[in-house]
Structures are given as structure tokens and as C-alpha cells.
């Protein structure tokens, strides 16, 4: 067996894969945050709670109704996205004329409510969610053993991320969206229903979070706190990438996941904080973020 810098290759590739998985979630979540921020100008603090809701809903469908993973992958984002639509209509839409900070405070309150409700009902210990039969087992790649499900998560999130990027950057619908981000009044004057577009955008962003939750359910144990700590890391990812570009959010998400994985190999103690350290460095060197437009 060969060794790389004194690290056995299994360990290296294993952590790299883990980093890639984490990166998939960072990318999916920061993408959702960026899409929502683009049009609504609020930071959705409830994003982590909605990701957790996605995982729980998948678990509930399985446990109470016997509905499996593949249907959950379709139904859960729609359901959670719909709840997002309701939240936007009832609450967030009342805050657009105010300082953006109120949106952050409101969604923080929502996150507390959602997490508290699930914690009351299900406690803090994790609930298991089995990997669907089609994706159990693994593949030997020669240099490492790849569990099929993990490969699927990376692939699925890549496809979703690139699909979102394509929709926003290359289609007519995306052109409307980008135009409304720049100048909602003008787009409205052209006869496009901007408020509805805003509502649906929030629903879509929330749906993305829920989708990430379903993807995460078989990997991480399903528990009420799973989104809370993750979302803060995702905030750091967003600060590093800057929310100016969709592709930037995706690249930063995956990149930071990999860096985190590598840190776990070479300096395990630092893996929890490496993203925050990178954030500090980026703030020093390029305060607007790597892909951000100037503030």
C-alpha cells in the first residue's frame, strides 16, 4: 500500500468523501439561502429548521404511512415548500417595507418554534431511517470502498444544484427572477405578478432545504437539532461565497466541504472551526466574499 504524507489512502479518501457529502449539504442549503435572499432580501434563519422538517417528514411518511424514500424525495419538498408559502404569505410579506433585520428575527423565532415542537414530540435522541434497498451496499473503486447511498447523495445534490443554476441563469423564468431581483417595480410594470413570484421563490428555497433533509435522513440520525448547528456553518459558507452568484454558492459549498474533510485528516482538532477561520481570512482579504458583488 502507498501512503500520502503519512496518511493511509483509505483514511484520506474516506474523509474526502465525507467532506464531499457535507459539501453537498452546504451547497444545497446555501443555494436555497441565496435564492431566497436574492428576491426577498431576507436571510431565512428557519432554513435549518426546515431542513430538519424535511428529514422528519420523510421519517414520518415511512413510519406512519409506509411511504418509502423515493416518494418522500418528491412529496416532502412539496409539503415543506407549501408550508413555506403559507409562512411567506402570512408573515414574511408583512416585513418587506422594514429593515431586513426584522426578517432575520422573524425567521429566527420560527426556527425556535419548529425546533421546540419537534423536540417536545420526539425528544433529542436520533431516529433511524434506513437506506433504501436500491442504494444499500457499496462499490469497490479500487482505491476505496464507496457506499452507494453516499455516492447518490453527492450525485443528486450536484444535479439539483446545477439544475437550479440552469433554471435561473438560462431560462425565461430565471430571467424574470433575475430581473425582479434587480428592479421589482419595473418587472411588475411589465405585467408580471412579482408578489406571487416572491412567494413561490420562498417556497422553492424552503423546498430545497427539505430535499436536503430527505437526502440527509439515512446518513445522519433524524433529530430536532440536526439543522440548528448546520445552518450556522452554512451562514459562514454564505459569507465566504457572497450571495451574489448562484454558481458561487454551489462551488463554495462543495469546496468548503472538501477543505473541512481534509482538515479532519491532517488536523482533526481544527475541523470544527476551519470554515470559521476561512471566513475570518476572507473578511480580511475580500470582505464582499469570494463571488460577491461589492457591498
Amino acid at each position: 500500500m502507498f501512503e500520502l504524507l503519512g496518511i493511509p489512502p483509505q483514511a484520506l479518501f474516506g474523509q474526502l468523501l465525507l467532506g464531499l457529502i457535507n459539501g453537498s449539504f452546504y451547497a444545497l442549503l446555501s443555494l436555497g439561502l441565496a435564492v431566497i435572499f436574492g428576491l426577498l432580501n431576507i436571510i431565512n434563519f428557519a432554513h435549518g429548521a426546515q431542513y430538519m422538517m424535511g428529514a422528519f417528514l420523510a421519517w414520518m411518511l415511512m413510519t406512519y404511512f409506509g411511504i418509502g424514500y423515493w416518494w418522500a424525495l418528491l412529496l416532502v419538498p412539496i409539503a415543506v415548500g407549501a408550508s413555506g408559502v403559507v409562512i411567506e404569505r402570512l408573515m414574511i410579506s408583512r416585513l418587506y417595507h422594514l429593515d431586513h433585520l426584522y426578517g432575520l428575527l422573524l425567521t429566527f423565532g420560527l426556527a425556535l418554534i419548529i425546533q421546540g415542537l419537534f423536540r417536545n414530540q420526539y425528544g433529542v435522541s436520533g431516529l433511524p431511517y434506513t437506506i433504501p434497498a436500491e442504494l444499500s451496499g457499496g462499490t469497490n473503486l479500487g482505491f476505496m470502498f464507496l457506499p452507494n447511498y453516499r455516492g447518490w447523495v453527492v450525485l443528486a445534490s450536484l444535479v439539483v444544484c446545477l439544475g437550479t443554476w440552469f433554471t435561473i441563469e438560462k431560462t425565461k423564468l430565471g430571467a424574470y427572477l433575475r430581473a425582479a431581483t434587480e428592479n421589482p417595480t419595473l418587472v411588475g410594470a411589465f405585467g408580471i405578478n412579482v408578489p406571487r413570484m416572491i412567494t413561490l421563490t420562498y417556497g422553492f428555497g424552503v423546498g430545497l432545504a427539505a430535499l436536503a433533509g430527505v437526502l440527509a435522513a439515512p446518513i445522519y440520525s433524524v433529530n430536532p437539532n440536526m439543522g440548528a448547528d448546520l445552518i450556522i456553518v452554512v451562514f459562514a459558507v454564505v459569507v465566504i461565497g457572497g450571495m451574489g452568484s448562484i454558481l458561487g454558492a454551489i462551488v463554495t459549498g462543495f469546496g468548503l466541504g472538501i477543505i473541512e474533510g481534509l482538515t479532519r485528516v491532517f488536523y482533526p482538532e481544527g475541523s470544527a472551526v476551519v470554515i470559521f477561520v476561512i471566513m475570518a481570512l476572507v473578511l480580511l482579504v475580500k470582505p464582499a466574499g469570494l463571488f460577491g458583488r461589492t457591498v
Binding site: M91, L105, L106, F108, G109, L110, A111, L112, I113, I114, Q115, G116, L117, R119, N120
Partner: peptide
């Protein structure tokens, strides 16, 4: 967890 929920409601 009701404390958390209540705080969330007060926030909202």
C-alpha cells in the same frame, strides 16, 4: 421545550 416554543412565539 415549551420555553423554546414560547420564546419563538414571542419573537414572531
Amino acid at each position: 421545550a415549551w420555553v423554546t416554543i414560547l420564546q419563538g412565539i414571542v419573537f414572531v
